Computed example of a mutant assay.
Amino acid sequence: MELRLTNSFLGCGLWLYLVALCAIIGWCPVASVEVYTPSEVFVENGTAGLLKCTFKSNQVISSQAAVSWSYIPEGSSDSAGETIFHYAGGKGFPGTMQFNNRIEWAGDLNKKDGSIRIKNMQFSDNGTYLCDVKNPPDIGGKPSMTKLRVVKRESLPQTSPAVIVGAVIGAIIGLIIIAIVAYLLIRVMRSSRDYGGCTSIESVSIQAARPGKKAESSTDGSRCSSPSAPVQGPVIYAQLDHSGSKNSFHKMEPVVYADIRKN
């Protein structure tokens, strides 16, 4: 394993030397890779921690692209650190014994992702981690640093990704409920506003005409307001026979007058 790691470093170093020489004599331009990492990461003690690293390159990802992770222990004055993981040629090569068998590749160079995952994080893993990406001929640029804090569960910040996702989901559900309630209220208000009176068919009560009195309609107190002109149907009148004929004693002969008016 150490031999593979050494050969990988030698190959990468040789490539960097050739590209640097090419740039010095002016044969080819030197581009830089922009590397991005979060400034600070909190991980619960005893769990796996993901160290994110993304990069931007103007060149197509080549087979010579490589990612190197270095570690500076907390309180150390070393500015470069020691290499703990190297990824090149589709394979990962672990470095120091402190992280032996605990680091695994979690990125995808084709997606410009150079992340790693460290299992079983311990308090002794606190420190600064540096991610460096080379994609020849893009070899310039500086490593990006992230501060790792291994803490107990109760010391985890409340703004963890799980809390943020839960808050976003709760807000979305609340907005949906508010929208549904508002829609129902608007429908109820429109229904009550559009209702202008009775919706049943106008009924006419028939009363027997008495001498000296007009027949009164019972619909006077229950008039319906309608936007359209009223349609008057047949009006039925009842006529009593007041002749003195015996044959017509207490006989009521209905007479129907049809009064149909057009709108």
Rank of each mutant, 00 (worst) to 15 (best):
E253Y: 14
L18P: 02
G221N: 14
K147L: 13
S32M: 11
P143N: 03
D132Y: 11
V255T: 06
S124C: 05
S63P: 09
V168R: 02
D259M: 06
L130W: 05
A208G: 07
L109C: 09
I169S: 02
P73G: 08
G140C: 11
N126H: 12
G196H: 14
V35N: 10
K112W: 03
L148P: 08
C22Q: 09
G13P: 02
L240I: 15
E44F: 01
P94W: 01
D132I: 00
K112S: 10
Y237W: 04
P38H: 05
W105D: 03
G233N: 03
A171P: 04
G197D: 08
P234W: 00
S192I: 08
N110D: 07
E74Q: 15
A66N: 08
F85C: 08
I164C: 03
V255S: 06
S70Y: 15
I116W: 09
G26R: 03
A66P: 04
S70C: 09
D113E: 00
D138K: 03
K147D: 10
G196M: 14
V19L: 15
A162M: 07
P161F: 06
P230M: 04
S144K: 04
L51H: 02
D138P: 13
G197A: 12
V43R: 03
N58F: 14
H86G: 06
S32T: 15
P234Y: 00
P73E: 07
R117P: 06
H242D: 15
A23C: 10
N100C: 01
S225W: 14
C22M: 09
M145T: 05
D113W: 00
N135Y: 00
Y257V: 13
R210P: 05
Y87N: 00
I206P: 00
A208I: 13
C224W: 12
V60H: 02
G212V: 00
K119P: 09
T83G: 12
G107W: 04
W27Y: 11
A167D: 04
A88N: 05
K134N: 10
I84V: 14
P254C: 05
S228Q: 07
S191F: 12
R102M: 09
G140F: 08
C131K: 05
G92M: 04
I139H: 03
V165R: 11
N126M: 10
F249R: 14
W105A: 07
I84C: 07
S32I: 07
Q122W: 10
S68V: 15
S57D: 14
Q64S: 13
V255F: 10
V235C: 06
Y87I: 01
W105P: 10
Q122M: 14
N100K: 11
I177C: 06
G49K: 01
A258Y: 15
I173E: 01
T128P: 01
I186F: 09
L185M: 09
T47N: 12
V204D: 07
M97A: 13
L21W: 09
E216F: 12
L50N: 10
G92K: 01
K119S: 13
V256H: 01
R117E: 11
M145H: 07
R102T: 10
F42C: 03
A65C: 10
I61M: 14
